[in-house]
Design a protein around this nucleic acid. Structure first.
Length: 257
DNA sequence: ATGGTTGCTTAGCAA
């Protein structure tokens, strides 16, 4: 099973690119973030014609997450499913071929010390609690998304320049480690020790041509599933050319089922 | 400290 995660930065602006990418890479499951559409505006029909069903948690103009799958999607859950009200569409879960799949869009945080950064911290804390509900030791779970966190210095093109930002600081690195400590494995790091691999480059400052990127999009898996992860990579090619998303898709292949 | 770009929505916000 080939699983991808991609922050498309508007599914309407990226639909042609997404369709071409699906045809070329033939993933079984795709977790999408930053749809920037309501569920009513989501292009279910063209994706169905391309062979994909979709579970969607949309919102007007901002955020929005989805899970695409060739197989049936069951037990769809939108948001954290707790008492607290859901103001932003940032989390969706569904079961595909017996595998629980999450698509998450962690808040960016704007600036360290801002109200948005406080919201990012709260959201991550809530996410940790949400993951605790799963039996992370046994039940196969894959957590995909734009985490808006670069886990380590080797995940940042210029760590000194990015140190202290919302994407790369000690507090965020600790938050990411805690997610892993709760029983998840970074599939990319299972297969690649070297630095220099990024999933996001700012539209500004010619960041992509200068390769000033950060690895902030991740596919995490529970240990029994991670054991069955046979390959993982980032499709940097998808960031090239006209009208790209500012994120590249990340991919993991599992010997499943 | 600011700016640079993109998308949604229509001047300003979010990233």
């Amino acid at each position: 099973m080939k699983i991808a995660s991609w922050n498309v930065n508007s599914i309407r602006a990226r639909l042609e690119r997404l369709l071409h990418w699906l045809a070329e890479h033939q993933p079984d499951v795709v977790c999408l973030q930053e749809l920037k559409v309501t569920e009513e505006q989501f292009p279910f029909e063209v994706l169905r014609e391309a062979g994909y069903r979709a579970a969607v948690y949309g919102q007007k103009a901002y955020n929005g997450v989805a899970i695409l799958a060739r197989a049936e999607l069951t037990d769809v859950q939108r948001g954290f499913g707790d008492e607290e009200e859901e103001a932003q569409a940032r989390l969706i879960a569904a079961t595909v071929d017996g595998l629980r799949v999450l698509s998450a869009y962690v808040p960016n945080g704007a600036e360290v010390g801002s109200e948005k950064y406080a919201h990012k911290l709260r959201w991550l804390d809530r996410f940790k609690g949400y993951l605790k509900e799963y039996d992370l030791s046994g039940r196969p779970l894959v957590v995909c998304g734009d985490f808006n966190i670069a886990p380590e210095a080797r995940d940042v093109a210029h760590p000194d320049a990015w140190e202290g930002t919302v994407l790369f600081n000690p507090e965020m690195r600790a938050a990411f480690r805690e997610l892993l400590d709760s029983g998840l494995i970074d599939t990319f790091r299972k297969h690649e020790d070297r630095g220099g691999f990024y999933s996001w480059w700012d539209y500004r400052r010619l960041a992509f041509v200068r390769d000033d990127g950060l690895r902030i999009d991740h596919i995490l898996a529970t240990p029994p599933l991670a054991d069955r992860c046979t390959a993982a990579w980032i499709d940097r090619e998808a960031r090239k050319g006209p009208k790209p998303s500012d994120h590249a898709p990340v991919i993991a292949v599992f010997d499943w089922p």
